[in-house]
Design a protein around this nucleic acid. Sequence first.
DNA 1: CAGTATCCGAGCGGATACTG
DNA 2: CAGTATCCGCTCGGATACTG
Lengths: 134, 134
Amino acid sequence: MSATNTRVPPGEGVGPAVNPDDCPVREVLDRIGDKWSVLVIVLLGRRTHRYSELHRTIDGISQRMLTLTLRALVRDGLVERTAHASVPPRVEYSLTGLGRTLLEPLTALDRWAVEHREDVRAARERHDRERPGA
Amino acid sequence: MSATNTRVPPGEGVGPAVNPDDCPVREVLDRIGDKWSVLVIVLLGRRTHRYSELHRTIDGISQRMLTLTLRALVRDGLVERTAHASVPPRVEYSLTGLGRTLLEPLTALDRWAVEHREDVRAARERHDRERPGA
DNA sequence: CAGTATCCGAGCGGATACTG
DNA sequence: CAGTATCCGCTCGGATACTG
């Protein structure tokens, strides 16, 4: 992993300078590292959802944030919006091909999280015990 | 991928409710999804760095943010701080075993980013062309 | 060198009310 | 049903100055 400007064989090099604006990983995180995007992607990875389904299923999301999140994902080509002209309106969201490819690295991260969440919790607790003050 | 409270075989289930506070992936993102953590992890993944090295290498980071980022990573057990008592002081940061395990899923995400950044850029451009207004 | 302390502006996201 | 519009607090992070 490396910034584009300093692509180096892993483990090598002294690395000149790393820029957050030109680093692939950080670029993804800027898009899906927010509070809601991943949740939306995960749900759409299971199946197509209607707007109201997402709103009901994602606990605590506001209409505003759901709309903004979906808009950003659609804009980035990860999610597809399909409006069925009917009364009442019916709008469905699903992952695009591109969006589905993201599921794999996301799953890898999820596995890590599941496997190591307890380690992190323990490390944190130990740390806080040793440094009582804030 | 799924929220802990609704762990479901991928692609299955109607999924009751997904909570951002109880979802492994989001938990990781809450820790390393910020502006600087990944950059630090990546650099420490290459080799041990001194504080000043990180400060020089990571373009644009402030002392404040470098310190806060390192503190959080140490607290979570991903990074180890070693202070050599000498004058002038010499403090080295390196990944812990736990921190190194994170490198793998991060690399997966990096690969995705490199492989698809152009797709995203194109999708975005097309989208903006079709919807001229903000 | 390796931090800490303080101040402050920008924007992320919640709450609420309204609409095609 | 599927959104918009508006207001607003709070946190993230930058700038600057100071210290063991």
